[in-house]
Computed example of a mutant assay.
Amino acid sequence: METRRLQFLLELSRLGSMRAVADVLETTTSTVSQQISVLAKETGVALLEPDGRRVRLTPAGRRLAEHAVTILAAVEAARVDLDPEAEPAGTVRVAGFGTGVRHAVLPVADQLAQRHPQVRVTISEHEPAEALAQLRTDDIDLALTYDYNLAPATADPSLAVRPLWAEPWGLAVPRADAKRLRGNGTLDVFAALRDRDWIGNSRNGADETVVGTLASMAGFSPRFTHRADNLDLVQDLIAAGGGVGLLPESWPTRSDVTVLPLTGPDVRLRAFACTRRGRDAWPPLALVLGLLPGD
């Protein structure tokens, strides 16, 4: 079987439609359909099945797409070995949390556009659980996730996880409270705010786990009144008297909001690059991974 036909099948498994495959591979939808039909005859199994007005991969088609990853990566690795100057080419699908995308993925996309124009990055904003779910179903190639040192994520043996960077987080409070609280240890700060409303994350429970752990150590159970995953909205809620909540220490704040450092214990967000095992040998993905920032 020709590797070009495997490429059509693999891109269909990633992108979900023949039109999208045709756009990425700069061909026509009829060519995509024809090449996958020839591949089905070569393998002797049905690779596609109807899905409303569209088609989707059969279980056999999905298994062959899995093999295609390994086969095409090996072919590409051989090509690079024979011609080290050869340029990687392909579309890397990335899903990650908003601040991580801004910090890490957008600069990488800019570098690729300037230095490796044949490698394209598509970006979707998702919280860790959402991104990992898409990674497991092969809807993306790279998940940018995070956890906290006080709320570590559970390891998934089917995924390769690469630590990237860690960032200290503090407790954001109205500026009027900052002066009397500044300089106190974490548990003293939490105890002083035990009667306040607290702001959690609407799409990830790790923030509330961290707050709940520290509040428990300080002798109370926090009352979560608001939830938001947009950090600017968290600030606005704090400024409006909606409570207090976690924010990165480096986050640019409003004049009426202060982020207090937390010490003893501290709170650190830890960022990770997650891929399906064996996929990071694919040259376009390997290139992206190599450009991501680390500690």
Rank of each mutant, 00 (worst) to 15 (best):
V75K: 13
V75W: 03
V75S: 07
E76L: 15
E76H: 06
E76R: 14
A77E: 08
R79N: 05
R79T: 13
V80Q: 08
D81M: 09
L82T: 07
L82N: 04
D83H: 06
E85W: 03
A86H: 00
A86V: 10
E87L: 00
P88E: 03
P88Q: 02
P88H: 05
P88W: 01
A89T: 06
A89G: 12
A89C: 10
G90W: 03
G90P: 13
T91F: 04
T91N: 02
V92E: 05
V92G: 10
R93W: 04
R93Y: 03
A95Y: 02
A95E: 09
A95H: 06
A95W: 01
G96H: 05
F97D: 07
G98A: 12
G98C: 07
G98V: 12
T99Y: 02
H103E: 00
H103P: 00
H103T: 03
H103W: 01
V105L: 12
V105D: 05
V105E: 05
V105H: 06
A109T: 09
D110I: 14
D110T: 15
L112I: 11
L112S: 09
A113M: 07
A113V: 09
A113K: 13
A113D: 06
R115W: 03
R115C: 08
R115I: 10
H116F: 09
V119W: 02
V121G: 08
V121E: 01
V121N: 04
I123A: 05
P128C: 14
P128Y: 04
A129W: 02
A131G: 12
L132W: 01
A133C: 11
Q134P: 14
Q134M: 15
L135N: 09
L135C: 13
T137Q: 06
T137E: 02
D138T: 07
D138F: 07
D139F: 04
D139P: 09
D139V: 14
I140A: 12
I140L: 15
L142I: 13
A143R: 13
L144S: 00
L144G: 01
T145D: 02
D147Q: 10
D147T: 14
A151W: 04
A153H: 08
A153I: 14
A153P: 11
T154D: 11
T154Y: 05
A155C: 11
A155D: 14
D156R: 01
D156K: 00
D156M: 01
P157H: 08
S158E: 13
S158G: 11
L159V: 15
A160E: 02
R162T: 15
P163T: 10
L164F: 00
W165V: 15
A166Q: 06
E167F: 01
E167M: 10
E167Q: 11
P168H: 05
W169F: 15
G170E: 00
P174V: 13
P174R: 08
A176S: 09
D177T: 10
A178N: 08
A178Y: 03
A178D: 11
K179S: 08
R180I: 11
R182P: 05
G183M: 12
G183P: 07
N184A: 09
G185W: 01
T186A: 04
